[in-house]
Design a protein around this nucleic acid. Structure first.
Length: 851
RNA sequence: GCCCGCGUGGUGGAAUGGUAGACACAGGGGACUUAAAAUCCCUAGGCCGAAAGGCCAUGCCGGUUCGAGUCCGGCCGCGGGUACCA
C-alpha cells in the first residue's frame, strides 16, 4: 500500500475497535468517569452535515477524555416521537411506527461509518414501549407528589379540519393544510408544576459555571422574576360579581400616570361581557383569531374595546379610568389585567394615542421640564429621574427606589401588596395526537381521574390506526379507549392525550446510564455516571429543552429516581452552530421559486445553472433544510473521500459555536491535506537518515503542538487545534531531522489527530509501529522545558502606531528595554527630537512611546 | 414586538485591551511533465509608489484608554428563541 486509501482501511479500523470493545462504557470504580452526550437526533430520514458536526464534536471530546484515562460513557439514541411521523403517514400513507423505525435503521447505518466512539449497546428510541412505559411510571409518581394537574388552556383550532394545530402549522393565522382561519379553543389539559420551581431554577443558574453566559441569561429572562404591586380597582358599572378588578404592575411608581385599565380577552370579566353583548363577543372573537403564540400576539396590531365599565383610581376615588378589553394582554401573566401608563410604556403610549386617551407624565429627566411627549419616556429603572406626579418617596429618585416606595405606600395604606411574580408558566404537556407517549390515566364516571396501575404499564399505543381523516386517531379508535377503572373496576375510558415530546427528551440522559433497567433508573448506575460532564447541542434548545430537563431532574429526584447531585443534570454545556449552504432556485411557471439540490447545480465563476443549462438563482447561505433543498448528503462525501475527511472538514475552519458553510471545494482540500499527512508518514518508513542536528527544532515544535492542540480541545477550539496541526505538518514536511525524531514526531501527530481523524491516525500508528491501537494509547504530554523561548520580539508603537520592532532577551527588565527602544534607529527617526511624554513597557508584549 | 447572539481580506477564519489578517480555501506566478493530473516552491487586505515607505482598513456613528476587532452608549443588517417544530 502506498497511498492514503480510506475506502479500504476505515472499515477495518472500525472492526478492530469493535473487536477490542474500546467504546463499551464500563463502571470502573478505579477510574474517574466522564459522561459526554450530544443532543440525540430526531429520526427525520437521513443524516445531514449538522449531525456530522454535532456528533464529531462529541466524539472528539469522548476520544480525548478516554485517552486521558477516564472511563467514558458516550451513548446514542433517538428522539423518536413527534409530528413529522404523523404528517408522513397522512401524506404518503403508511404507519408512523414503520416510518420512524425505518428512518432510525437508515440513520444508524449512516452514522456507523463515521467511526464515532459510541457505546451502541445502550441505544434506545423514545418510542420504544420499554422507554415510554418507564416515563408513564414516572408520570404517576409525579401525580402522587402533586407535580401534575389539569386545567383549561387554549389551543389553535382548525375549524375545517376539526383538529388542533401546532403553532408551526399556523401560517399568518391560517391552518397550513385547510387554509381556514384558525380559532382559539379551550380544552382541559395536563400540566406539570414547573412554575413552583421558578425561584429555584433561577437561583441555580448561578451555579452553572460551565454553561454559556448567554444561555443562563436567556433562561433567567424566560423565568422572568419581577417584584411589583398587586391591587384591586373598584369598578363602576360592571356586571355582578365583578365589583373589583385585580391588577398587577411592575411599575407602581407610575400609578399617577394611569389613563386606562385593560383586560385580556380571556379574562373572566371579558367572558361575562361576551355572553350578554354581541358586539363584545365579536371583538373577542376577533382577538381569538390571532393565534396562541406570543410572537403573533405581540406583533398583531394593538386593539382595544371600550367596555363602558369604569374603575376608580385607588389614590383618588373621584378619578375614573375606562376599562378596555385589549388583544395584547396575556391571561397567563399576572392577573390578566393591567393599568396603562402611556407616558412611560411605548405600547401603552401607542394604545392611548390610538384611542385618544390622556398621556400624563409621572416623571421627567432629572434636568428637564415637563412637556408633551412625542413617544414614551422609558429610562432604566436604575436611572435617577424627577417625579412630577409622585406619591411616594423623594421627588428625585431612581425608578427602583420609587417602585419600592410605592409598594410600601400601598401596603401602609392598605390598598395593595408587594408581590413577586414569575413570567414562567406551568408546562402544558397534553397533545391531541397519536405519535407520543400516552398519558397513563383513566376517566371513571364514579372515581373521576385515576392513574393507571403500574403493573398495567406500559399503556401501549394501538397499531391499528388510520390517518386518512384529521384529528387524533386515539380519540376515534373503536376499542382502545375502553378499559377498567384501576380503582373500582367498572368500565372506564382512557385518556387520549399523549405527552409533549419535550417530556421524552427531559430524562433520556438519565436512562442512558441503565437503559435496560426495570425501573426508570438504576441507583448504582445513575450514581456512578451522572451528571453529564459535557452536553453538546444546538443553541435553539437554550430555553425549552434545557429548562424542562432541569425541572424534570428535580422532579425525578423528589420521586427517588435521581440522586441529589443530579438535580442539575448537565455540568457543562456547549452550544454549537449550524451547517449552512447556498440556496439554489429556478422559477416555476407562476414565478415562485423552485428549489434545487446542490448536487443538481453546476456552479462556477460565471454563475450557476442546471445540467440542461437552465439558469439558477443563487441565494444566501442559510441553515440546511429539506424545504429549501440546500442539503448536502454527508454520505456522498464519506463514500467519496472517507469519514475522516468529513470529520476533519467539520472540525476545521469554523469555530464550533458559529455556523459553518459547507463548500464542496473545502471537502476536496481537506482530503488533500489528509493524503499529505499520510504520505509524510509513509516517507518516514522509506527515507534514509536525516540530520540529527535538526532534531531539537522538530521536537520543540512537536511539544509546542502538543500543548496547543491540548488547549484547543479542552477549550472547544477545535478549529484552532486543527490549524496548529496544519502548522506542524508544514514544519514536519520541511524538517530534515533524523529518522528516529521524525518517527517520534509523526507518532505524536497521529495521536494528536486521533480524536478528529481516528481512522487515519490508526493507519499511521500501525505503519510506524506504534503499540496497540491509538484509541487505547495515553494522551501525549508536553515537556515544559521544550516550550521555553529565550528571546522575544517587541513591537514599538509611537502614539499607538507600530513603527519599529526590537528583539530582546525574554527576561530583560523594563528599564533596559526602554533604553534599547529609545536607541532604535527608526524610533529616533520618527521622534525627530520631540520630547517623550510617557513610555509604556508591557513586558513580553509591547513598547508604546507617547510624544 | 420582546429576549439572546453574531458582523474582520475574494472566502472560512486568527488575535489574555498590546504587531489586525495565524492557519486554510479560492486566485495569480513558477518548477516538474511530451501533455495533463498529482506534487513542490513563490505571491497575495485596499489605495499611492519603481522602491524604500506612506495612508486607509475589523457593519455604521460616538465615547473610555498611552493603545480598541476586543470595553461602554446609540444605530443598521443577519441569525436563534418566543412556551404545540424538534
Amino acid at each position: 500500500m502506498s497511498r492514503y486509501d480510506p475506502a479500504t482501511t476505515e472499515a477495518r479500523w472500525r472492526q478492530a475497535w469493535d473487536e477490542a470493545g474500546v467504546f463499551t462504557a464500563r463502571r470502573d470504580e478505579a477510574k474517574p468517569k466522564y459522561y459526554v452526550l450530544e443532543m440525540f437526533p430526531y429520526p427525520s430520514g437521513r443524516i445531514h452535515m449538522g449531525h456530522v458536526r454535532n456528533y464529531t464534536m462529541g466524539d472528539v471530546v469522548a476520544r480525548y477524555k478516554s485517552s486521558c484515562g477516564f472511563s467514558v460513557l458516550h451513548p446514542m439514541g433517538w428522539d423518536a416521537f413527534g409530528m413529522p411521523a404523523e404528517n408522513a403517514a397522512m401524506e404518503k400513507g403508511g404507519h408512523p411506527k414503520e416510518w420512524t423505525y425505518g428512518n432510525i435503521a437508515v440513520m444508524r447505518d449512516q452514522m456507523k461509518p463515521l467511526g464515532l466512539s459510541i457505546d451502541w449497546s445502550r441505544e434506545f428510541a423514545t418510542c420504544d414501549p420499554e422507554y415510554y412505559g418507564q416515563q408513564q411510571s414516572m408520570f404517576i409518581d409525579f401525580m402522587d407528589k402533586g407535580l401534575v394537574y389539569r386545567k383549561n388552556a387554549v389551543v389553535n383550532w382548525d375549524p375545517v379540519d376539526m383538529t388542533v394545530l401546532a403553532n408551526e402549522q399556523v401560517i399568518d393565522g391560517k391552518g397550513w393544510r385547510s387554509g381556514a382561519v384558525v380559532e382559539r379553543r379551550e380544552l382541559t389539559q395536563w400540566f406539570f408544576r414547573i412554575s413552583d420551581f421558578a425561584g429555584e431554577l433561577l437561583e441555580a443558574l448561578d451555579g452553572l459555571k460551565d454553561w454559556p453566559e448567554k444561555v443562563r441569561l436567556m433562561q433567567a429572562n424566560w423565568i422572568g422574576k419581577s417584584r411589583g404591586l398587586q391591587f384591586a380597582f373598584d369598578t363602576v358599572g360592571a356586571p355582578e360579581g365583578f365589583d373589583r378588578l385585580e391588577v398587577y404592575t411592575t411599575r407602581p411608581d407610575t400609578l399617577m400616570g394611569a389613563s386606562f385599565a385593560a383586560i385580556s380577552p380571556d379574562h373572566p370579566l371579558a367572558k361575562a361581557l361576551e355572553a350578554t353583548d354581541p358586539k363584545v363577543a365579536e371583538f373577542v372573537a376577533e382577538c381569538r383569531r390571532i393565534g396562541t403564540s406570543e410572537e403573533a400576539l405581540e406583533k398583531a396590531e394593538k386593539k382595544g374595546w371600550d367596555t363602558g365599565i369604569r374603575v376608580r383610581h385607588p389614590l383618588d376615588s373621584s378619578w375614573e379610568l375606562p376599562v378596555y378589553i385589549a388583544n395584547f394582554i396575556l391571561m397567563d401573566y399576572g392577573t390578566g389585567a393591567i393599568f396603562g401608563c402611556p407616558a412611560h410604556d411605548q405600547r401603552d403610549f401607542d394604545f392611548a394615542t390610538k384611542y385618544g386617551l390622556p398621556i400624563p407624565p409621572v416623571f421627567v429627566a432629572e434636568d428637564a421640564q415637563e412637556a408633551a411627549l412625542a413617544e414614551a419616556f422609558v429610562p432604566m429603572k436604575s436611572e435617577r429621574v424627577r417625579y412630577v406626579r409622585g406619591f411616594a418617596g423623594e421627588g428625585v429618585q431612581t425608578g427602583d427606589e420609587a417602585v419600592n416606595a410605592a409598594i410600601d405606600h400601598a401596603e401602609a395604606n392598605g390598598y395593595g401588596k408587594g408581590v413577586t411574580n414569575y413570567r414562567l408558566r406551568d408546562w402544558g404537556i397534553s397533545r391531541q395526537r397519536y405519535w407520543g407517549c400516552p398519558i397513563p390515566v383513566v376517566h371513571c364516571a364514579d372515581c373521576g381521574v385515576v392513574a393507571e396501575k403500574k403493573e398495567n404499564l406500559p399503556v401501549r399505543l394501538p397499531d391499528d390506526v388510520s390517518f386518512d381523516v384529521p384529528g387524533n386517531p386515539l380519540d376515534r379508535h373503536p376499542t382502545w379507549r375502553d378499559c377498567a377503572c384501576p380503582s373500582c373496576g367498572k368500565a372506564a375510558r382512557r385518556e387520549t392525550d399523549t405527552m409533549d415530546t419535550f417530556v421524552d427528551s427531559s430524562w433520556y440522559y438519565a436512562r442512558f446510564t441503565s437503559p435496560r433497567a426495570a425501573t426508570p433508573t438504576d441507583a448504582a448506575d445513575v450514581d456512578y455516571w451522572m451528571n453529564v460532564d459535557q452536553y453538546i447541542g444546538g443553541i435553539e434548545h437554550a430555553i425549552l429543552h434545557l429548562l424542562y430537563s432541569r425541572f424534570f431532574a428535580r422532579a425525578m429526584h423528589i420521586c427517588g429516581h435521581l440522586p441529589a447531585k443530579a438535580i442539575e443534570p448537565f455540568n457543562a454545556l456547549f452550544t454549537q452552530g449550524m451547517v449552512t449552504h447556498e440556496t439554489y432556485a429556478t422559477r416555476g411557471a407562476d414565478g415562485r421559486p423552485v428549489w434545487q439540490l446542490p448536487e443538481d447545480v453546476i456552479r462556477d465563476e460565471t454563475g450557476a445553472r442546471l445540467k440542461d443549462g437552465t439558469p439558477v438563482e443563487v441565494g444566501p447561505s442559510i441553515k440546511m433544510s429539506k424545504s429549501k433543498k440546500n442539503v448536502v448528503d454527508p454520505m456522498d462525501i464519506i463514500t467519496r473521500y472517507g469519514a475522516d475527511t468529513a470529520r476533519w472538514f467539520v472540525m476545521s475552519d469554523s469555530p464550533p459555536e458559529r455556523d459553518v458553510e459547507w463548500t464542496a471545494s473545502g471537502a476536496e482540500a481537506t482530503h488533500k491535506h489528509l493524503s499529505r499527512v499520510w504520505r509524510l508518514a509513509h516517507e518516514v518508513t522509506t527515507r534514509g537518515e536525516g540530520n540529527p542536528a535538526h532534531d531539537t527544532d522538530l521536537l520543540r515544535a512537536m511539544h509546542k503542538t502538543i500543548a496547543e492542540v491540548t488547549t484547543g480541545i479542552e477549550g472547544f477550539a477545535f478549529n484552532k487545534a486543527v490549524a496548529k496541526l496544519y502548522e506542524f505538518t508544514n514544519t514536519f514536511a520541511k524538517s530534515d531531522a533524523s529518522a528516529a525524531a521524525k518517527r517520534t514526531a509523526m507518532l505524536t501527530m497521529a495521536q494528536l489527530m486521533s480524536p478528529m481523524v481516528p481512522h487515519l491516525s490508526e493507519d499511521i500508528w500501525s505503519m510506524l509501529g506504534g503499540s496497540g491501537l491509538v484509541a487505547g494509547a495515553p494522551w501525549p504530554k508536553a515537556d515544559p522545558a521544550m516550550l521555553v523561548e529565550d528571546s522575544v520580539t517587541l513591537p514599538i508603537q509611537i502614539n499607538g502606531k507600530r513603527r519599529a520592532e526590537i528583539t530582546v532577551p525574554k527576561d530583560m527588565p523594563p528599564a533596559e528595554v526602554e533604553k534599547i527602544a529609545l536607541a532604535d534607529e527608526s524610533v529616533i527617526k520618527f521622534l525627530a527630537g520631540q520630547p517623550v511624554k510617557k513610555l509604556i513597557v508591557v513586558p513580553g508584549r509591547i513598547v508604546n512611546v507617547v510624544v
